[in-house]
Design a binder for these strands. Structure first.
Length: 523
RNA sequence: GCCCUCAUAGCUCAACGGAUAGAGUACCGGUCUUCGGAACCGAGGAUGGGGGUUCGAUUCCCUCUGAGGGCACCA
């Protein structure tokens, strides 16, 4: 419906001789401003030298010429806004139709979490984990072909694997935690080199992380990409290096080989081969992204932690260097999302989470204490770039009054009503048009039809946290409806009210499911 | 020193450059013979400072202050 209004406005704009550009139609916060509203006259008034209200008047006149049975009323309001009020039949058919998303042949690869196989996931990983997972769900629903990918930094030539190996052999302390020690004690590293021991231990760590991600977090991956196997052993790294060299993109300095990234937008050039002859991780990273394009993905999304933001520029300069295509919205590739840091608050004092200081909170512990639904909600209801502070005491205190329960409760209540109606007789006719004369019933209907718009918008702007906000407001609308309209009365039920209640329940469940959160029938 | 984020109500967070800046929580007051009260209704309470662009700025630009992160031949 929103697209339709946008088309109507754009058409009217053109009809009165204004060069059609982008037209924005939105849902006004205040329902007295209609179902949809547009600021088109304000935006184009200036360009055409006409006052916004005058232009709005002309547009409305034009729109009214081709009367639509979907629009009940159009009005010009405020500085020049045009407000649209839908007819009950338009609302009803939008409600029945549900969400429709046309299949797109856009192939999207989204890589997230990708923790090193040197330790467990901590709360900092929660952000990228839940953001990536929910985004993948949204994009899939929006019709895109999505591949979820996890990159395993397990190259036996990397320093971290060597360090891990040293620790395994008792020659080092790096990455040592009680959990890691437990793993070391269970494994046999007899006669192994540091490298071999590192690979073996990394494999064990990765395996338990994978289990936790799938079972504990409920996030699944289509591809677990092994750097050691796919890039090192396969020779892809070497091949990439040769390609860079042969195209004259590298040069030698101080015994090392440098890549000319600064000529493509980076702050400085980067080392690709150290003076000892080994390749840096950067080569693998380049080869990896090239491989994603080679596999046929048009959009490559990376979700990284804030500590990796410095890599964005160099990676995108490589994109320009190698001619990687732009993303659909003309963004540089790879498209990178940075999850801001999680800081801790203990006894009212903020502190940085640091492994050395021993104040790391594992994601596992959080899930065990609060349950996956609460944790998912907590990490998903705010924008990715907010620097969230995690107050353990506050989380504990608020877990019982967490907004996630509010949404789940509304769902359970609607489920209970639907269940109850199964044993009742259909009551006297009460059609939809009559039902939505009740403001809260109309508001709920409208809110339900907003679902597809929320999904469409997130698939464009990637603001996944809008889902939580939508779930809350849908629950609020459902509660208001519950207050005003009785679905079951005595031994009969109101058919159109029941239909509305069921649609609300389904939509709430679907929204929660996009967030990876359960929608219980009873609580 | 350079680069990236961020600064909104007591607290945790929202707001394609638009209409009276919204929620939750906390505090205060009210609803209630419950299709499930984990509910509903109401009140008070906010854009860090200073410039600029605009018909209009929380949003864009400059600057100051404050917070976090990054500036390796580690990943």
């Amino acid at each position: 419906m929103k697209e339709k209004i946008e088309a109507i406005v754009a058409e009217a704009l053109e009809a009165i001789g204004v060069k059609a550009g982008v037209v924005h139609v939105e849902r006004p916060a205040d329902s007295s401003h209609g179902d949809y509203s547009t600021n088109t006259a304000l935006v184009y008034g200036k360009k055409t030298g006409v006052s916004p209200r005058e232009l709005a008047g002309k547009l409305v006149e034009k729109i009214l010429e081709t009367s639509s049975d979907e629009i009940e009323k159009i009005e010009v309001a405020g500085a020049g806004f045009i407000n649209f009020f839908l007819t009950s039949s338009a609302l009803e058919s939008a409600l029945e139709k549900g969400q429709t998303f046309s299949k797109s042949d856009e192939r999207v690869n989204i890589e997230f979490i990708s923790t090193n196989p040197t330790g467990e996931l901590h709360i900092g990983h929660g952000r990228s984990a839940f953001f990536g997972d929910a985004l993948a769900r949204v994009l899939t629903l929006a019709g895109k072909e999505v591949t979820r990918e996890f990159y395993i930094n397990d190259s036996r030539e990397s320093n971290q694997i060597r360090e891990l190996g040293k620790t395994a052999l008792g020659k080092g302390e790096q990455y040592k935690t009680p959990e890691l020690e437990e793993k070391i004690n269970k494994l046999d590293f007899n006669g192994m080199s540091e490298e071999e021991a590192g690979v073996k231990l990394a494999h064990a760590v990765q395996e338990s992380n994978r289990k936790f991600i799938e079972k504990g977090l409920g996030a699944h991956f289509d591809v677990w990409y092994s750097e050691d196997k796919e890039l090192r052993a396969s020779g892809a790294n070497e091949k990439m290096l040769e390609r860079l060299k042969s195209r004259g993109l590298t040069y030698e300095k101080e015994g090392a080989l440098w890549l000319r990234t600064s000529e493509y937008g980076d702050d400085e050039d980067r080392v690709v081969v150290r003076s000892d002859g080994t390749m840096t991780y950067f080569v693998a990273d380049i080869a990896y992204h090239q491989n994603k394009f080679d596999r046929g993905f048009q959009t490559i999304i990376d979700v990284w932690g804030a500590d990796h933001h410095g890599h964005v520029k160099r990676m995108q300069s490589v994109g320009r260097m190698l001619g990687w295509p732009k993303a659909q919205n003309d963004a540089d590739q790879p498209v990178v999302f940075i999850a801001q840091m999680v800081s801790l608050k203990e006894d009212g004092v903020s502190s940085k989470m640091s492994k050395r200081a021993g104040n790391v909170i594992l994601l596992r512990d959080l899930v065990e204490e609060f349950g996956i639904d609460v944790v998912r909600w907590f990490f998903s209801d705010r924008a990715l770039n907010t620097q969230m502070t995690f107050d353990m005491a506050l989380a504990r205190e608020q877990s019982e009054k967490n907004p996630v329960f509010y949404a789940q409760y509304a769902h359970a209540r609607l489920a209970s009503i639907a269940e109850k109606c199964k044993g009742l007789k259909e009551g006297s006719a009460n059609n939809f048009a009559d039902l939505i004369k009740i403001p809260s019933a109309r508001a709920l209907s409208s809110k339900i039809t907003e679902f597809s718009e929320v999904v469409a918008e997130i698939s464009r702007d990637y603001n996944v946290h809008a889902l939580a906000g939508y779930a809350t407001s849908l629950a609020t609308s459902a509660n208001a409806f519950y207050r005003d309209v009785r679905v079951a009365e005595g031994d009969t039920f109101n058919p159109s009210a029941l239909t509305l209640a069921i649609r609300a329940k389904e939509t709430l469940a679907e929204t929660l499911s996009l967030l990876g959160i359960s929608a219980p029938e009873r609580m």
